[in-house]
Amino acid sequence: MGFTKNKAGVDTPLRTELAKKGVVWTTLDFLYNWGRRSSIWPMQFGLACCAFEMIAAACARYDIARFGAELFRASPRQADLMIISGTVTKKMAPQVVRLYNQMPEPKYALTMGACAISGGPFIDGYNVLRGIDRYIPVDVHLPGCPPRPEALLHGLMELQKKIASQEIQKTAWYQKGLKREFPIPEFGPNGLIPKFNPEVWQPSKENPRREHYGQTILVGKKLKAPDLELAAAPQPAAPGAAA
């Protein structure tokens, strides 16, 4: 387990010597984080297609239990990790943020699949949120459409590395007075209000549409319907009209 640096201040030969005598020399950080990262409880929360790969990862072949994350909890109150597996639509985004708020600290979020990261193939849709990281902080992004179960395991290991690198003294949720509540967006007449949570996410400075952010784009607008009755009357009998 080479996740954290050896900060115990004792060199390796001495440690092995002590270990032979039954003395373990380690830091509290390492021990504590070892416990935390080895029993991540994810939330049982499937949004779309990627949820199937998440279930496959929990089943016998991929067996997420090897990483201590097999206990899918249906309640956010008992979960450490939220796997956002699938497209987040504008109707669903408020509930996702609400569920994230309901999870106890320390909590982590993992976006699974292109849709949850950026909207993915459905980015042009009027009802699809272009990335849940606009409203909640995301720890691991997992690209793919859908990512394979192995990719989910890889994402979980990355999260374990992140957990292992956190120090108890410096981490925000062990400090006094921390209250992390992310504002829940509301469904307004033109999509979600607000468009994003500026504390978490901001449009990039190079974005040419930064000024007009959130306005609708009309693509491929057609105005005239085809006259089907007219087309049906002189039926071209040639079946090979493909070209």
Binding site: M92, F122, D124
Partner: peptide, 14 residues
Amino acid sequence: FGYLHRNHEQIAEN
């Protein structure tokens, strides 16, 4: 309904 409405038909028309 509608929590997973991802504009399938609108995308097809473009």
